[in-house]
Amino acid sequence: MAKIEVDETRCKGCELCAAACAKKCIAMSKTFSATGYYPAFLCAPELCSGCGLCAQVCPDLAISVFKEAVR
């Protein structure tokens, strides 16, 4: 189980995260955010592995990556 959360107030819709995602589970919103961009969102939550590559390329530190704690 893993997921990402995109901070819409920080995301500038550059699409770098969507391109970096190997599972293609990030897409760009069809509607404007409050800051005037089309923010990224997790379009296929079931595919997210929590690899964090999206966060690696995000210039705005807008992506939080969550993973189930491994014991």
């Binding site: 107030t9 920080r10 210039p59 705005d60 990556v65």
Partner: peptide
């Protein structure tokens, strides 16, 4: 679930002014 990429403490928690996609 656990946040695996917390914002570094050495970066102030503000929105940066850079253009979309800027490195």
């Amino acid at each position: 679930m656990l946040l695996i990429n917390p914002r570094p403490e050495s970066l102030v928690d503000v929105k940066m002014h850079y253009c979309p996609g800027c490195g």
